[in-house]
């Protein structure tokens, strides 16, 4: 396959940045999207150019490091797939592919396609924890959890914090991420003591970071590589209103 890439290049946080066009030839359809970029980067290095910086780690779709907006869609158009698990067979030969970083004020570009997502860490720090006595692990069945609650909590807990929800949201809202973390804990007995303070603190931190508000467009769920459902946001809203009584 031969491809034309339009890639966002930005030398550093202060640089204005620009789209740069690259031609990539002899791409195997079996390559992942990141492997295709690796091939381009090897060539750029050999030519003495600066390789394109992008975040990646496990390349198995479970770590949440990778992520770029491909042709205007976070992680590309393949549903429930991280960028590293997106394969070139989903693109046509001679396709023109636009690659951009997540765009959001709370996610400043560090370099090229790498953005600083520590705003997410601060949202977690604001309330994404539970208080448990340290010591040996408790018996597995000492605290009963209903199956439906366990399943729903687990669904929410599969959030890998990649930031695609923010990138896709027309409002630049981090509601799906924050809601996944809140839902994951508030459905379980261990999360009850801090349930009210958690929702309040995490929502306020989300606002303080400069994320937009939710308008229930559903764009976040549609691009989420883990398919975090929209009803987590209803759960967050419920918990937040409860805490404001």
């Amino acid at each position: 396959m031969n491809l034309t890439l339009k890639v966002w290049r930005q030398n550093g946080p202060q640089d204005k940045g620009r789209m740069v066009t690259y031609r990539v030839e002899d791409v195997s359809p079996d390559m992942s999207f990141l492997e295709m970029l690796d091939v381009l980067n090897e060539r750029l290095i050999l030519e003495g150019d600066d390789p394109i910086a992008f975040d990646h780690d496990c390349r198995e779709g479970i770590c949440g490091m990778c992520g770029m907006v491909i042709n205007g869609v976070a992680h590309g158009e393949q549903v429930a797939t991280t960028t590293c698990q997106l394969h070139m067979r989903h693109f046509e030969d001679n396709a023109v592919i636009t690659i951009e970083p997540w765009r959001a004020a709370p996610f400043p570009v560090v370099k090229d396609l790498v953005v600083d997502r520590s705003a997410f860490d601060r949202i977690i720090q604001a309330g994404g924890f539970i208080s448990v006595p340290a010591g040996s692990a408790p018996d597995a069945h000492s605290v009963p959890v209903k199956k439906v609650d366990a399943d729903a909590a687990f669904d929410a807990a599969t959030c890998i914090g990649c930031g695609a929800c923010v990138a896709a949201c027309p409002n630049g809202s981090a509601s799906l991420f924050t809601a996944a973390k809140i839902t994951h804990l508030s459905l379980l007995p261990q999360g009850q003591p801090e349930r009210d303070s958690r929702a309040k603190a995490m929502v306020e931190q989300m606002d303080a970071e400069g994320f937009g508000g939710c308008t229930n467009t559903g764009e976040c769920t549609a691009v989420c590589p883990k398919g975090i459902p929209l009803d987590t946001i209803a759960q967050m809203n419920r918990d937040y209103l409860r805490s404001s009584k």
Binding site: K6, W8, M19, V69, N71, G72, V73, E77, T98, E100, A168, P170, T217, G218, E219, T221, A222, V223
Partner: peptide, 8 residues
């Protein structure tokens, strides 16, 4: 830069 397509 790319026209964002609504996925939802």
């Amino acid at each position: 830069a790319a026209k964002r397509k609504s996925q939802a």
